[in-house]
Amino acid sequence: MRRDLVCGGVLLAIVAVFWMQRDYGGQLTARFPDFVLMVMAALAVGIIVRALVKRETGEAGERRVDLRYLGAAVALLLAWAVGMSLIGFTISGVIVFVVIAQLIRRGRPQPRLVALDSAVGLAVVVACFFVFTRILLVPLPVSVLIGM
């Protein structure tokens, strides 16, 4: 029940945020998004009402998620997305590659494994950089320091 309430609430919040952004005037421009927003709001209310009426408890078969690792994964991906344009694709890529590899290995980082992961990460990221910039001509963001 709680999950359905959160789901309905999140959908209503999305509708509210988009509704407040409505600054278009044309009838043809407005008709489709307005219709979508109204249907979404109705569906969100439906989900909430059903959750309150049914009052089911607990989600059977749902696996518990380790929030520490989830938080780390979310933070890493966000930092990678933002950091790529700041410190370049290669440096950010190798750093995040090694951190993710260490996270998945679990336990305390061992210098030998960190060195191994760094070497693999460097090979993968540099290969990717050269394929995309030299063959596919995609100008990836580069670091001012090392030029790649």
Partner: peptide, 18 residues
């Protein structure tokens, strides 16, 4: 898995940028 996950990450980052 500890190499596959970050390798997918590299591809997704570069793919969406491209």
């Amino acid at each position: 898995t500890h190499y596959l996950a970050p390798a997918i990450g590299v591809l997704t980052i570069v793919g969406s940028y491209a």
